[in-house]
Amino acid sequence: MIDEEHAVLESIIKEFASKEIEPKVKSIEVNGIDQDILQKLVSQGFLGALASAENGGANLDDLGYVILLRELASSSPSISFLVFLENSFVIKSLNNDPSIKDISIGNYLGTFAFGNLIGMKEYGKISINEGINGYLRAVFMPEAKILLIDNGKGEIIKTENCHKIIKNEDQLGFRGLKFSTVELNCKDYVKTGVKTSEIIRNIHLPIAAMAIGIAKGSILKAIDYAGQREAFMHKLKDFEPIAFNLSKAYSELEVLNNYLIEAAINRDYKKDLMIKTLALDFAKRASKLALQTHGGYGYLLDFGIEKFYRDSMFLSVVLGNELFDLKDLSKEIFGGEAGFI
C-alpha cells in the first residue's frame, strides 16, 4: 500500500496521462514528442522530477518517481523513457550544474549518449583532447542542447550545442524519441564530476517501473478488449484460455507492482536488480499476450498495443542486455563472483 501523499500523486499522474497523453499516443509514435507535450510535462514538473524545488524540479522521492514512470509508461512508453532520460541520466549527471534549472523549467533538453556507455565496438569513435571530435551512435532526442558522454574513463562530461545529427537509426522502440547517430565537433567540454557507474547503479529500479508500466498498459487493454470483442458468438473473455491467461497475467502484474513499491520504499541494490530482471521478462510476455488477444488488430498502430510489444523488447536491450544483467544479479545473489565460467 502506498501512503496518501503518493496516492494523490498517482491520481494526478493518471489523470494527466489520460487527458494529455492518451489522445496523442499515435502521433507520438509517428511524429515524435511535440512541443505541446513537452511543455505539459514541464508544467507538471515531470522533466525535473528528481531536481530540487530551488532548481525548478518536483523533488520526487524514489517511490514518487517510480509511480510517475510506471503510469506514464502504461500510456506511452516513449514519454516515460523521456522523463527517465532527463532525470536518471541528465539531471543526475549534471550534479549542481545550473543547466538543471533550465531543463526542469523547459528551456531546453539534455540527452545522454548510451552508445559508448554500453561499450560496443561499433557505437562510435570519439577523441577527447582539448576538444571532442568524432561520432556516437544510439543517441535519443539528438536535438537536445546538452549532450552528456562517458569519457572512456568512467567519468561523465558535458558538451553544449556542438553535435549534429548525421543519421537516424533503425528504431525498434521508443519511437517518440528519435534515435540517431550524431557527429561531435566540440571545442570545449566540462567534467561534471559524476561517475558513470553511479548513474548506472541507479537505473535498475526506474527501468523496472517502466517495464511494469508497459505490462500494465498491455494487460489492461487486453482485458478491456476481451470484454468487448466477440468471436464464435461469445465475448473473448468467455473462453477459458483467454480468461485464464489474462487473469494470471493480471495477478503477476499486481504481485510485481507490490514488490516494485516495496523496492522503492526500502532501496537495496539486490532488490533493484531482482525486480528489474523479472519486470523486463514480464513486460515482454504481457505485451505478447495482449497483442495475441487483439489478433490482427493488435498488429496495427491504431490499436495502441503493438508499441508495447516493441518497447518492452527495446527496453530490455537499450541499456545493457540479458547477459550483463544476469551476471550482475548472480553476483548479488551469491554475494560475490558467480556465473562467470
Binding site: M120, D170, V317
Partner: peptide
C-alpha cells in the same frame, strides 16, 4: 535479448517485428 542494442540496431529489429504475425 542476447545481442542487445547491437542486434536492435540491425535488421534483427525488423525480423523481430515480422515474426509475430505468424502466430496470428
Amino acid at each position: 535479448s542476447l545481442l542487445g542494442l547491437d542486434g536492435a540496431l540491425t535488421e534483427l529489429e525488423r525480423i523481430f517485428r515480422d515474426a509475430k504475425i505468424n502466430e496470428i
